[in-house]
Simulated scan of single mutants.
Amino acid sequence: MAMSPDPKVLKIQIGIELRRLRENAGHTAAEAAEALGGAVPKISKIENGKQAATPEEVEKLADLYGTPAKRRKYLANLAAQVPKRSRRRTMYRDAVPDWVQRFFALESEATEMKIYEVELITGLFQIEDYARATLLAWEPAADPRLVESHVKTRMERQAVLARTDPALDLHVVLSESALHRVQGSQDVMARQLNHLLEVSELPNVRLQVLPFDANRIAVTSSAALMHLSDQQLSTVYLEDFLGATYLWEPEEYTRYSVIFERLSNAALPVPKTRQLIARVLKKYR
């Protein structure tokens, strides 16, 4: 049975996109509020994901912002999926392809991210050829145009690394296996690890590798912890073969934060991480 998308994520995504549309169109929050016949605080709540916008309200704002028909319809459909009444807490999942856009919306606004990756270099650090190879490994018969579209999107996401308002504080722990799991070719891996060394020098990036010989560590799945200051929320993002799950309870975020801290403590310090990457890089040259 299909599971409903997370209503909290839907509200956040709609709010983020409506705010971008408003700012790109050059309208103030007061003008948006006037279009809805409401007050500025309502627009603030909608844009921060605190209050759901109805499909009708989305349509009115889209009219004001001059939003293209395709995007307008997409956002109105999202708004229609938000439950009118709160439900008892349950596990929500996002199915492909919408979960991709929801994750990107959260990632684009995150002020702090902690990521643990088991088998692959995390998407924000991937070069084009590595990204293409991972996509084709997942679906060898994929339409080349779709693959290139995904690669382009993955590269565009990396703009968050240079974002200053708000700046992103990114801490990544990679399993050493990600350095050895060949994607594409030896040449692709050489260029990918060289790029990894470059991004590890960014002032807002802390990159560590969890070595094979780390003791008392048995974490077998990847996870991303995200904090969005403007929305005053934190979530844990878990991805699997069927889609994505978001965990919102404070105790869940705390638990994953503790696990991530254990991984970070067991991982190599940043200087030794760079040394290990450089050593592995030599075998690909």
Rank of each mutant, 00 (worst) to 15 (best):
M1Y: 06
P7C: 03
L10Q: 09
I12A: 04
I12P: 00
I16C: 02
L18D: 11
R19A: 08
R20D: 12
L21D: 08
L21K: 06
L21T: 05
L21H: 11
N24P: 03
A25C: 06
H27G: 12
A32F: 09
A35E: 15
L36Q: 12
G37M: 05
A39C: 09
A39S: 14
K42P: 06
S44V: 08
K45S: 09
K45D: 10
I46K: 10
E47Q: 03
N48T: 12
K50S: 06
Q51A: 14
T54Y: 02
E57V: 01
E57M: 06
V58K: 03
K60D: 05
K60R: 14
L64Q: 10
Y65W: 11
Y65F: 13
T67I: 02
K70C: 03
K70S: 12
Y74Q: 14
A79M: 06
Q81F: 10
V82E: 07
P83H: 11
K84R: 11
M91Y: 05
M91K: 04
M91V: 07
V96T: 00
W99I: 01
Q101N: 06
A105C: 01
S108E: 00
E109A: 08
E109H: 04
E112I: 14
M113Y: 10
K114E: 05
Y116K: 05
I121H: 05
F125R: 14
Q126D: 06
I127Q: 08
Y130L: 00
A131I: 00
R132H: 02
A133H: 01
L135F: 05
L136S: 02
E139D: 12
A142V: 01
D143I: 00
R145I: 04
R145C: 03
V147W: 02
S149E: 13
H150D: 10
H150P: 00
E156H: 08
D165T: 14
D165L: 13
H171L: 10
H171Y: 10
L174M: 13
S175P: 11
L179W: 13
H180N: 09
Q186H: 09
Q186S: 10
A190T: 09
R191F: 05
L193Y: 07
N194I: 02
N194R: 08
L197P: 01
Q208Y: 01
Q208H: 04
V209C: 01
L210M: 01
D213I: 02
A214T: 01
V219M: 14
T220N: 11
T220Q: 11
S221D: 05
S222V: 03
A223E: 07
M226I: 15
H227C: 13
Q231F: 08
L233I: 13
L233R: 13
S234M: 09
T235H: 07
Y237G: 15
L238H: 04
D240Q: 00
L242H: 09
A244Q: 07
A244H: 02
T245C: 06
Y246G: 11
Y246C: 13
P250M: 06
Y253Q: 14
V258G: 03
N265V: 08
P269E: 12
V270M: 15
K272T: 01
T273E: 14
T273S: 08
L276N: 13
R279V: 05
R279A: 12
